Amino acid sequence: MGKNGLNNIEDFLTNDRFISFVFEQTSSLKEYWDDYLMLNPEKKSLAIKAEQILLNELDAPGMSSGEQEELKERILNTIKGF
């Protein structure tokens, strides 16, 4: 991924690898994004805001864990369609 590949929040929100990182937090994805943000520190605030947007959707009051999982799947499937 080039330095200019993620220039705004929407770029992060539509990046399959970023979406997977936010929801799955595997060690390989964590390492990838840690490295990316270390090499591109100007992108860190965008990544944090995008992550907050995604996670806030899942932390909606009154949602059961099943509903949260369903929403997560819907987000991932929608993003994969891009």
Rank of each mutant, 00 (worst) to 15 (best):
M1V: 05
K3M: 02
N7K: 11
N7F: 03
N7L: 14
I9E: 05
D11T: 15
D11I: 08
D11S: 14
F12W: 07
F12N: 01
F12K: 02
L13K: 06
T14Y: 14
T14E: 14
N15D: 15
N15M: 06
N15G: 06
D16E: 15
D16C: 13
R17A: 11
F18V: 10
F18W: 11
I19Q: 09
I19L: 12
F21A: 12
F21K: 12
F21I: 05
F21G: 11
E24V: 10
Q25W: 02
T26S: 01
S27T: 08
S27Y: 11
S28Q: 00
L29T: 12
L29D: 09
L29E: 07
K30W: 01
D34F: 07
D34H: 03
D34L: 04
D34K: 13
Y36N: 02
Y36M: 09
L37I: 08
L37N: 01
L39D: 13
L39G: 04
N40E: 10
P41Y: 02
E42H: 12
K43I: 01
K44N: 10
K44S: 00
K44D: 04
K44L: 08
S45G: 03
S45W: 04
L46K: 12
A47D: 06
A47W: 06
I48Q: 06
K49W: 01
E51P: 00
E51Q: 08
I53P: 04
I53D: 07
L54F: 02
L55Q: 09
N56V: 10
E57Q: 10
L58F: 00
P61V: 04
P61H: 06
P61L: 06
P61S: 04
M63A: 09
M63H: 09
E67C: 07
E70A: 15
L71T: 11
L71K: 15
E73H: 15
E73R: 15
R74T: 15
R74W: 14
N77L: 04
N77F: 06
I79M: 03
K80E: 14
G81V: 08
F82T: 08
